[in-house]
């Protein structure tokens, strides 16, 4: 039983050490700004299309679903309210982060994993660079910038999707839709909607790096690390989502 627990406990410990060093390095020289910019490009700009699509369709679906539920109470005009709240609090951050887990946690894990199994990580250390400083920290910083940004984009595109349904299918006026959605948002929705993607960014980038750096056993090991990173990041997104939501709810501000 104890042996069974040893492995995961050691892994968590290793992860915490990695996270600690990755954050420390943000404030330490040398800074690899070029790598941060490069990662912002691959992580952020590269994910734009998929995030826009996911945001759009979740807004459309939410508007359709909510309008049916609201019709039972004769309050179809509140569609904008519900779309705005669900997008800002939950769907925007969570769906964007899950797309990033699928695209970037796994991408980071396979990139660092192949560097690990071909001894490039060792070479990096032998040639004077700290792989955490050079590889992990830039990915962490870049994701922490891009994920909130992408989430906001997904939110707005989702609102736009809801608007299309409101006009075309529910025959609401534009004005009604936008004012009801705008007024629905309070500061704590916005806070939730920005804190969540920041936490998810840490999860997505560090889990990708973690599994990549501990890959072993040739190309097979890289494949394994890639899948593990994606699954672990997705699960951790849901767990941290529950924790953050619970914090906001229990503060009574929600």
């Amino acid at each position: 039983m104890l042996d069974l627990l040893k492995e995961p406990v050691l892994a968590v410990q290793e992860f915490v050490v990695l996270a600690g060093r990755a954050f420390q390095n943000i404030f330490r020289k040398p800074h690899y700004f070029d790598d941060v910019i490069l990662q912002m490009d691959t992580i952020g700009v590269g994910s734009l299309v998929v995030v826009v699509l996911v945001g759009l369709f979740s807004g459309v679906v939410m508007a359709l679903q909510m309008s049916r539920a609201l019709a039972q109470y004769g309050e179809v005009e509140k569609t904008g309210t519900l779309v705005a709240i669900t997008l800002a609090r939950e769907l925007g951050p969570v769906l964007t982060a899950i797309m990033m887990a699928g695209r970037n946690s796994s991408g980071i894990a396979s990139e660092l994993g192949s560097m690990k199994v071909t001894e490039q990580i060792d070479a990096m250390r032998a040639l004077g660079t700290d792989p955490i400083q050079k590889l992990v920290t830039p990915r962490l910083v870049a994701t922490c910038f891009m994920l909130p940004l992408l989430t906001v984009i997904a939110d707005f595109v989702g609102l736009f999707g809801g608007w299309v349904i409101a006009i075309v299918k529910l025959h609401l006026t534009s004005r009604l839709y936008w004012t009801s959605s705008w007024q629905a948002l309070e500061w704590n929705d916005v806070a939730q909607g920005l804190i969540k993607p920041l936490v998810f960014a840490v999860v997505v980038s560090l889990i990708g790096c973690f599994y990549g750096l501990r890959a072993s056993g040739g190309t097979q090991g890289v494949g394994r690390a890639t899948t593990q990173a994606m699954v672990a990041a997705t699960i951790m997104i849901f767990i941290t989502d529950v924790m953050i939501t619970e914090m906001f709810v229990s503060q009574g501000v929600s």
């Binding site: 560097m115 071909t118 001894e119 490039q120 060792d122 070479a123 990096m124 250390r125 032998a126 040639l127 004077g128």
Partner: peptide, 14 residues
Amino acid sequence: RSRIGMVFQESALF
């Protein structure tokens, strides 16, 4: 390490 050169088995070029 800066005073040691190392050639890795599969080259380990970046």
